[in-house]
Each structure stands twice: as structure tokens, then as C-alpha cells.
Design a protein around this nucleic acid. Structure first.
Lengths: 195, 195
DNA sequence: GTCTATACCTTGATAGAC
DNA sequence: GTCTATCAAGGTATAGAC
């Protein structure tokens, strides 16, 4: 604390983003000041502007990074042979990934409106990209006769909303383990689109 | 405009709440200033404090009113004879009611964190009250052998998250009518908890 | 009941010393 | 790379005239 000199650019940058993520998720983008973020990191407010041109860009970078990681992580996931296996993998993956990053998930759903039109469109496109991967699974299964969703696009949105909702109530050390939650949701999802 | 005298307390109060609801939903509680709300209504900022002691109370009143209306409307809904009929009624009611009040629904999910502990607890209690009404339906059906949800509490939260999600994508005049959306979601919900 | 005026504070962002 | 100091703008809330 009160370190006056020296170069920390490789440390300070990530710490600023971590602090911003935590504070934005907790209090909301508009309610958090640059001074609060700086205080959390242990630097003065002016120093933040060495790492971001402005507050909105700081938010955008957090959301972009989250969406990129989400899609990359799903791509790296082992791929099931059948649509049914792929759907099960998706359900378990989505719950697990989101529970590991509650703050970023919260931000992604709540603070999009604080982005300018260009930044907003970029995040939206990534979100749609992710949704399309689920819809592709449903469509395949539909064609194969495994699934009988009344509407694959709506089923996609319904399933994602349902799964993402876990983040609003799940607490570590509660009644159910993450795996058990995955089991329960997989059972409901499987049946909801069953033929 | 520029009306200087006269008494409008019965008109101005509701107009302030309507303006606050619209602006809070659009830009977020923290991002909206009392001056903006006043401008939307067409009065000066100082005048707002005749109708609310502070900004947070204004938000609380909007959320409280919404939750009270939600529960009252569900109570007024015709009651099905069987658990299956009651579940169908709930699904259709929830979608319909929420689509009629997108701003209030949005606020109820996004701005709870801007309430102090007491106000927060009051809204949370109402939300839980509403959820319990759905869980009661599922438990009854479970006892009767109509449903076979792996966990009625989680099924409750999953169904509500799924249904509330409709508000994030539904657009008037789009591909599907509200009734058709109700049909599709009812099909998925029904199967998801089916025996 | 509403206005004008204002007290007092915090905001995002920048300039220049070190 | 970080600090201190600062700016103009805008924030909530109140006081007192009408």
C-alpha cells in the first residue's frame, strides 16, 4: 500500500478488471464509480485510464472476454455422438460453467444496456452464436426423431433461461451438489423436448 | 407546460410513478436522475419530494405494487379442478401477465439490489409467496401421481425462470401470437414434469 | 402544490509533477 | 506507472417564495 514507484502494468491491468467485475456485479455498472474501482485495486482513480480509455470500454471488455471464454469452453467440451448425448453435455456444461463465474454471468444479462450501439451489437452477436449451437443440437435431434420440441427456437431460449436461472438461487454448501443439480435439470430438459 | 399554480396531487403522483417505472426499466435505477424523472413528468425536481421521501422509496413502491398485483391477479384467476389444469393455468397466466407489464417485470428482476435490507426482504417475501403457489400445485400433482418432477422446489424455480424468459425476446407483431407462445411453453412445461 | 434557487457532494476524465 | 490536483458537469435533497 502507498507504493509510489515501480512498474506493475502486467499485474494492475488484470486486477482492475477483477475489481470492476466484482463491483459492477454487486452494485450495478452505473452505481459504481471509477474511484471505487481504484480504491478496491489500491491505486488512484487517474491510474485507471492507463488501462482503459473509459468506463464503458472497461465493461465491454469484461463482457466480451466472458462470451469468448464461454464459446471456447463449449467448443473444447467432449462432443457426444448422438443429439441426446450432445444435449445432455450442453445442459451440464452450461450449469457448470455459469456457476463458476456468477459475476460475469450476472453482468452479461444485466448491463448490456449500458453499452453503446456498436458494443451492444458485438455482445449480442456472440450470445446468438452460443444460442445457435444449442438450437443446432435440437434441430438435429428433431430431424432424427429423438426430440419433438414444438418449436426449436423457443425451446432453445426456454432451456437457456431455465439453466441460467440456476445462478439466481444456487448457494455453495446448500442442499444439493452441483452434479445433483445437473442431474435434476437434465431430467427436466430431456423430458421437455422428448418425442 | 409552465403551469404555475393549481393542485394536481391526484394526477401528478401516478404520473411520477409511471415515468420512474419507464425510465428505471430503460436505463437502470442508478443511471436515472431525479431531474430526468421530473422532466419526463413536466415538473421541477423539487416537486418529486412531495410524493416520495427519496429515490429508493420510489423504486420500492413500484416493486411492491407490481408484486401485489401479480399475486392478486393469480388469486383472481379461475382455478382448475386438477393439478394438471392448475399448472396449465399458471403457465398461461404467468406469460400473459408478465407480457402486459414488461417494465415492471424487468425492474423486479434487475433492481432488487438497490433496495436497503428491509425493503429487499419485503419484496423477496412476496416473490417467495408467489413461487410457493406454483410449488403447491406441483406437490399436489406429485402426490396424485400426475407429475414426476425430480425435485418440486427446483422444478418451481426452473419453470418460473423459463416462463419469465419470454419477456426477454417476445416482440409484439412477431412470428408468434401470445396464445401460441402459451401453447408452446405449456407443452414443454407439461412434459418436463410429466410422470 | 409547484416553482426557483441553491447547498453540498460525487462523478468521469485530464494535466503535469515525480 | 502512479500520484496529486483539478475541472466542469451533474447528482440528491432542501428552503422558502408564491
Amino acid at each position: 500500500m502507498a507504493r509510489k514507484t515501480g512498474s506493475h502494468s502486467e499485474i494492475t491491468g488484470p486486477r482492475i478488471r477483477a475489481a470492476a467485475l466484482k463491483l459492477f456485479a454487486r452494485h450495478g455498472f452505473a452505481a459504481v464509480s471509477m474511484r471505487q474501482i481504484a480504491a478496491e485495486v489500491g491505486v488512484q482513480a487517474g491510474a485507471l485510464y492507463l488501462y482503459t480509455p473509459d468506463k464503458e470500454t472497461l465493461l465491454f471488455d469484461l463482457l466480451k472476454e466472458h462470451m469468448d471464454e464461454l464459446i471456447a469452453a463449449w467448443e473444447a467440451e467432449p462432443r457426444g455422438a448422438s443429439p441426446r448425448e450432445r444435449l445432455e453435455a450442453f445442459v451440464r456444461f452450461h450449469i457448470r460453467f455459469n456457476l463458476e463465474r456468477p459475476d460475469a454471468v450476472f453482468l452479461s444479462y444485466m448491463e448490456l444496456r449500458n453499452l453503446g450501439p456498436g458494443n451492444f451489437a458485438a455482445i449480442e452477436a456472440l450470445r446468438r452464436d452460443y444460442e445457435n449451437r444449442l438450437e443446432a443440437i435440437l434441430s438435429e435431434g428433431q430431424a432424427a426423431g429423438t426430440f419433438a420440441a414444438p418449436d426449436t427456437k423457443l425451446a432453445t431460449l426456454a432451456i437457456i433461461a431455465m439453466l441460467t436461472g440456476v445462478n439466481t438461487w444456487y448457494r455453495e454448501g446448500g442442499r444439493l451438489s452441483r452434479d445433483r443439480v445437473g442431474d435434476i435439470y437434465w431430467d427436466m430438459v430431456r423430458k421437455s423436448v422428448a418425442a
